[in-house]
C-alpha cells in the first residue's frame, strides 16, 4: 500500500507543490476576485438590478464553471514541457500521490476558495449599495441548489482534468473542442434513437431532455420532470465523473516524455 500512498510523502509533495506555485495561485485569486467585483459592480451600479438569490445562483454557476475548468486545464501544464515533465515524473512519489495533489488543488481547494471569495464579494456588493427591491441576502452555499452546481462542476472538472493530462499544449481549447464535438455527436445519436423509438421525426435535443416533434399542424412538447430531481441522471453524472477521473489517473501513469 505504501508504494501507492504514503501519507508522509504525500504531505511533502503537497507542501512542495504549494511552495512552488503559491505566488501564481495568489495572483490568480486576486484576478478572480477582481473580475467578480468588476462584474458585480457593473450589475449593482450600472444596471441597478437587485442581486436576488436566482441572480446570485446563476453568477455562482457561470463563474464556477468558467474559472474552474480554465484553472483545471492548467494543473498539469508542466507535463507539456519536456524539461518540466522530466522533473515532475522522476520525482520519487507515486503517481497516485501526484494525481491526488493535482486533484485536491483543482477541485476541493479551488471550490472552497472560490465559494469563500464569492460569498465575500456578494456580501460586499449587497452592503455597498442598497438597490430598491433588494429583499434577499447572500445565497446559502450549503443548500441543495449550490450543491447540485458543485456536482455539475465535478463532471466538467473531470473532463478538464483528463484533458489536462491527455493533451500537451492548448489543454483548455483542445478539451473544449473534443467535448463539444462529443456533445454534438451525442445529440445527433439521441435524435436518431428517439426517432426510431417513436417513429416520428423528433427535434434534436440532449439525452434526458424534452421530447419535441410535429404532429399534424402543431408542435408537441413532452416535458420531463426537472432534470435536477432525476435520480437516474444524478447517478449517471456521478458515475461518469468517477470513470473520467479514473481514466485521468491511468493516463498519468502511462505518460512518457
Amino acid at each position: 500500500m505504501k508504494k501507492i500512498f504514503n501519507p508522509a510523502r504525500f504531505g511533502k509533495l503537497f507542501i512542495k507543490h504549494t511552495t512552488e506555485h503559491y505566488k501564481g495561485y495568489l495572483m490568480a485569486l486576486a484576478v478572480l476576485i477582481g473580475v467578480m467585483m468588476l462584474g458585480g459592480s457593473f450589475l449593482v451600479y450600472m444596471i441597478d438590478a437587485p442581486l436576488d438569490q436566482s441572480t446570485q445562483s446563476g453568477l455562482f454557476l457561470v463563474i464556477l464553471l468558467t474559472a474552474g475548468t480554465i484553472y483545471t486545464s492548467t494543473i498539469f501544464a508542466d507535463l507539456g514541457e519536456k524539461k518540466k515533465a522530466i522533473a515532475y515524473l522522476t520525482l520519487p512519489a507515486s503517481h497516485f500521490e501526484k494525481y491526488l495533489v493535482a486533484w485536491l488543488y483543482s477541485f476541493l481547494v479551488f471550490l472552497v476558495i472560490y465559494a469563500i471569495s464569492f460569498y465575500l464579494v456578494a456580501l460586499f456588493l449587497l452592503n455597498v449599495r442598497h438597490v430598491s427591491g433588494q429583499a434577499e441576502g447572500v445565497i446559502n452555499l450549503l443548500q441543495k441548489q449550490p450543491l447540485q452546481m458543485c456536482l455539475i462542476y465535478a463532471f466538467l472538472h473531470a473532463i478538464a482534468f483528463w484533458g489536462a493530462i491527455y493533451f500537451n499544449k492548448l489543454h483548455f481549447i483542445k478539451t473544449a473542442f473534443v467535448f463539444f464535438i462529443f456533445l454534438g455527436l451525442l445529440i445527433l445519436f439521441n435524435k436518431i434513437v428517439l426517432t426510431a423509438m417513436i417513429d416520428r421525426n423528433v427535434d434534436a435535443a440532449p439525452p434526458f431532455g424534452n421530447l419535441r416533434f410535429p404532429d399534424g399542424g402543431r408542435q408537441v412538447d413532452i416535458t420531463l420532470p426537472d432534470a435536477r430531481d432525476n435520480p437516474t441522471l444524478t447517478f449517471l453524472v456521478v458515475g461518469l465523473t468517477l470513470v473520467i477521473w479514473i481514466a485521468a489517473y491511468f493516463r498519468l501513469k502511462e505518460k512518457q516524455v
Binding site: K3, K83, P92
Partner: peptide
Amino acid sequence: RPVKVLEDIYFIAEELYVPSL
C-alpha cells in the same frame, strides 16, 4: 516508475528545469 526505483536513480537531463527558488 515505481517509487523505490526513482529514489535510487537520479537523472540530470540535457535540458534542465529549475524552479523560481
